[in-house]
Computed example of a mutant assay.
Amino acid sequence: MSAIDPEIAGQLASDLPREDFVRILRTFEDDLGRLARLLEEAVAAGDEEGYRRSAHSLAGAAAAVGARRLEQVARIAMDHRNAADPRALALQVRQEAAQALAELSALAEHPPGAS
Rank of each mutant, 00 (worst) to 15 (best):
S57P: 01
E40K: 11
L38W: 10
G50W: 07
R52Y: 07
R37K: 14
R34L: 11
A55V: 10
A61M: 10
Y51M: 11
H56Y: 07
Y51Q: 07
A63M: 04
L35N: 01
A42T: 09
A62S: 13
A61H: 02
E40V: 05
E48K: 14
A61P: 00
G60E: 06
Y51S: 02
A44E: 14
A55P: 05
G60V: 10
G46N: 01
A63F: 00
G46W: 00
S54P: 02
L39E: 02
E40F: 06
L39A: 00
A63D: 05
A61W: 01
A45F: 07
R37Q: 15
S57V: 09
V43I: 09
A42Q: 10
S54Y: 03
A61E: 00
S57I: 11
R53C: 03
G60W: 02
E41L: 12
L39K: 00
L32V: 12
L32Q: 06
Y51P: 07
G33Y: 03
G60D: 06
A55H: 04
G46C: 03
R53K: 14
H56C: 07
R34P: 01
V43N: 05
S54D: 03
L39I: 03
V43Y: 00
R53A: 12
E41S: 13
A62V: 11
L32W: 01
G60S: 14
E49T: 14
S57E: 12
A55L: 04
Y51E: 08
A62W: 03
G33A: 08
R34Q: 13
A36I: 08
L58I: 09
Y51R: 13
A61Y: 01
E41Q: 13
V43Q: 11
D47C: 13
A45K: 11
E48H: 10
R53H: 09
A62N: 07
R37M: 12
L39V: 02
A59F: 05
L38S: 15
A44D: 13
L38N: 14
A59I: 12
G60Y: 06
L39Q: 03
R52I: 12
A59N: 08
A62Y: 01
R53L: 14
E48A: 15
R34N: 10
A44K: 14
L58G: 00
E41I: 03
A59P: 02
H56I: 11
L39N: 00
E49A: 15
D47M: 07
R37N: 11
L32N: 05
A62L: 01
G46V: 01
E49C: 11
G50S: 11
G60F: 06
A59S: 15
R53Q: 12
G50M: 09
L58S: 03
Y51A: 03
Y51G: 02
R34C: 06
G60Q: 08
L32K: 05
G33T: 03
R37Y: 10
A55C: 08
E40M: 11
Y51L: 15
L35Q: 13
L35H: 06
L38K: 14
A62R: 01
R53T: 12
